[in-house]
Design a protein around this nucleic acid. Structure first.
Lengths: 202, 202
DNA sequence: GGCATAGACTAACAATTGTTAGCAAAGATA
DNA sequence: TATCTTTGCTAACAATTGTTAGTCTATGCC
């Protein structure tokens, strides 16, 4: 007797799993843990997912989709490298803040994906990184960004972006726009030629 | 028949465990996995550690010691906030690069500590963060740093520092000094008053 | 009504988990 | 030499794991 209408069990499971994988880590959450939270028995999961691993797969690749959508939006709506970079950051921050648990799983638990998903996932990550690198490259070639090691810039950018999910307080106390401005300010200040990219004041 | 002299089994176990916890995650590594690598049987661990959890505890708190040593060294050897901050970064980077696997475990696997170690660990982290915050505070009060939200600066700094262990390439291609300069440059450029902290040019 | 499908259940499985008990050999200490 | 401690082993344990089989029931469709 289903006591209330299930909006979509599969989505509900992904949602609950995201939160638990985020808090305890994928390996520390059992199917029975999830079952208790969802309100069904562990065996019933297999009507919706074919394995525990496929729940993780669903979460990770759904987030990858989100990140790529944001990236493509940023690239198609802007054409100057500096504007593109800022848009990339804004989109990325938006995705993280809108899917806090799931993005934490995406960043932290992907190594528990089984093949061939793991390889596929890493390839997607590589492509994302590569696209950002190209924006940097264009900016440097056009003389808009200083010449510097791209790996270092990418490290800086992704450390700030990927570390975001660790800081609950930041999410609570600042708007997406503020976070975006902060990160964009740091990165652009770090790489821009001259001062035209500075838009903060004391 | 011990085929060769054991330099120190307990340290060897901690070393092997660090590497495996780093690569697979604490929960995904069984005692038998570790045993195979060390060259003993799983049950023999209990002559050196009282539980699997106590191996993790050892790794995490040993690293906490390292980080605090570095912090204290930085604070005692310098007195101007800008110099202190730079020294803190240098010490921190040094500790991470010198104990790559163990520091990754420190940053990523601490949530699997059991009580009361978990609480104690979080308290240590809080204290570390608090000391850095005080340096920022002093710098602002002395007019050396711009007035800005300390949480945001701390978020930036720790994202860059704590994300370090994710980037094997960075470790391989840059010296500790280069990494330190890079991070210190970003943070000081972000917070310093005027241009005196800038030491790069196009 | 008749019937198929979806989605829940119970029960059980084989494997793996961390851990303990009991024992043996080597090294240190006396 | 006699004894104690250290450190390894084998065997086994109880619990938990992801997963499957088989069954029941409500819902939607003809």
């Amino acid at each position: 007797m289903p006591e209330k209408k299930t909006p979509d069990r599969k989505d509900q499971i992904a949602q609950v799993a995201s939160e638990h994988f985020h808090e305890k880590g994928y390996m520390a959450v059992s199917m029975r843990d999830l079952a208790k939270e969802v309100g069904i028995e562990a065996a019933s999961f297999y009507n919706h997912y074919e394995s525990k691993g496929s729940i993780l797969k669903e979460i990770c690749f759904r987030m990858a989709d989100e990140f790529f959508s944001g990236l493509n939006r940023a690239l198609s709506e802007h054409h100057l490298p500096a504007a593109q970079l800022q848009a990339i950051i804004r989109e990325h921050v938006g995705v993280v803040l809108k899917n806090f648990s799931a993005s934490a799983v995406f960043f932290r638990e992907w190594r528990h994906l089984s093949e061939p998903w793991l390889s596929q996932f890493l390839e997607l990550r590589r492509r994302y990184e590569e696209q950002v690198r190209q924006v940097l490259s264009q900016g440097m070639n056009q003389g808009l960004f200083r010449q510097m090691d791209q790996n270092v810039v990418v490290y800086t950018l992704f450390s700030l972006l990927n570390g975001l999910h660790e800081w609950k307080e930041v999410q609570q106390r600042f708007s997406p726009q503020e976070v975006t401005d902060h990160i964009a300010g740091i990165v652009l200040n770090g790489i821009a030629v001259g001062d035209q990219a500075k838009h903060h004041k004391s």
